[in-house]
Each structure stands twice: as structure tokens, then as C-alpha cells.
Amino acid sequence: VLKALERTRQLDIPDEKTMPVLMKLLEEAGGNWSYIKLDNYTALVDAIYSVED
């Protein structure tokens, strides 16, 4: 979780936006981090930006 938060902080995305999206992605992935961690957490960042749209 810390590495995911560090990555999104680099992009000026607050933890308050990151955590709900991260928890949803983890739930959808059955707790499997490998998809979320791919390409420096690209799936997480993309999911956060899609929620903002």
C-alpha cells in the first residue's frame, strides 16, 4: 500500500482519492497485487483518473 501511495503522491494525487480506488481494484483483483503493480501502478493511476472524469 505504501508504494502505491508513494507513486500517486508523485503525481499530486491525495491519499483520500487513492485509497478508495485502490481498495476497489484490490477487491476486483481478488487481492492480487500483480495487476495493480504493473508498469509502476499504471492501472491504479488510470483508475483514479477515470473516476475523476
Rank of each mutant, 00 (worst) to 15 (best):
L5G: 03
L5F: 05
L5E: 02
L11I: 05
A43R: 12
L44V: 05
N40D: 10
V1M: 12
I36M: 04
T42S: 15
I48H: 00
L38V: 10
L2H: 12
R9H: 03
I13W: 03
M19G: 02
D12F: 12
A47S: 07
I36D: 01
T8V: 05
V45S: 01
I48S: 01
E52Q: 13
L44S: 01
Y41R: 00
D46S: 13
A4L: 04
G31D: 07
D53R: 14
N40W: 07
S50F: 11
L22T: 00
P14E: 07
R9L: 05
I48C: 01
L38Q: 15
A4P: 03
M19Q: 03
G30H: 12
L2Y: 09
E16P: 05
D12Y: 10
E52A: 13
P20C: 10
T42E: 11
L26N: 00
V1D: 05
E27N: 10
E52V: 12
I13Y: 04
D39H: 10
D39Y: 09
A29K: 09
I36K: 00
G30Y: 08
Y35G: 11
Q10D: 09
P14C: 06
D15Q: 02
Y49W: 11
L22R: 00
K3N: 12
Y35L: 12
A29R: 09
T18N: 01
A29M: 13
Q10S: 13
M19V: 09
N32T: 06
I13F: 06
M23F: 10
D46K: 15
K3V: 07
L25E: 00
D46F: 10
L44T: 02
L11Y: 06
Q10P: 02
K17Q: 10
Y41H: 01
K3Y: 07
V21Q: 03
E6R: 07
Y41C: 03
Y35V: 13
K3H: 12
G30V: 05
N32M: 07
A29T: 15
A47L: 07
V1C: 14
L25F: 04
D12G: 15
A43T: 09
A29Y: 15
L25V: 04
K37M: 15
K37H: 10
G30N: 13
L22G: 00
W33G: 00
L2G: 11
Q10Y: 09
L2M: 13
L5T: 03
E6C: 11
E6G: 05
V51M: 14
V51E: 13
Y49T: 09
T8W: 06
I13P: 01
G31W: 14
A4V: 06
M19C: 13
V51Y: 14
D39S: 08
K17I: 15
L26P: 00
T8S: 05
T8A: 07
D53H: 14
G30P: 03
W33M: 04
S50G: 12
K37R: 13
L11G: 03
V21M: 07
N32Q: 08
K37T: 14
V1Q: 06
Q10M: 13
T8P: 03
Y35R: 10
V45H: 02
V1S: 04
K17P: 01
D39P: 03
S50K: 14
T18L: 04
R7P: 03
V51I: 14
M19W: 11
N40E: 07
N32V: 08
I36Y: 03
M19H: 05
D12S: 14
V51A: 14
E6F: 09
M23W: 10
A4I: 05
K24A: 10
V51L: 14
T18G: 02
E52H: 12
A47D: 02
L22D: 00
E52K: 13
V51R: 11
A29F: 15
R7W: 10
L44A: 01
Q10E: 13
I13M: 04
L5D: 02
V1T: 08
D53P: 14
D39F: 09
D53L: 13
G30Q: 12
R9P: 02
P20F: 12
G31M: 08
A4D: 03
N32A: 08
L11E: 07
D46P: 01
N40V: 05
K17V: 15
Y41V: 01
N32Y: 06
E6H: 09
Y35N: 12
L11P: 01
V21G: 00
D53V: 14
I48T: 02
R9F: 04
D15G: 03
S50Q: 13
V45Q: 02
Y41E: 00
V45G: 01
G30F: 09
M19N: 02
Q10W: 08
S34H: 15
E6A: 11
L44M: 02
M23I: 10
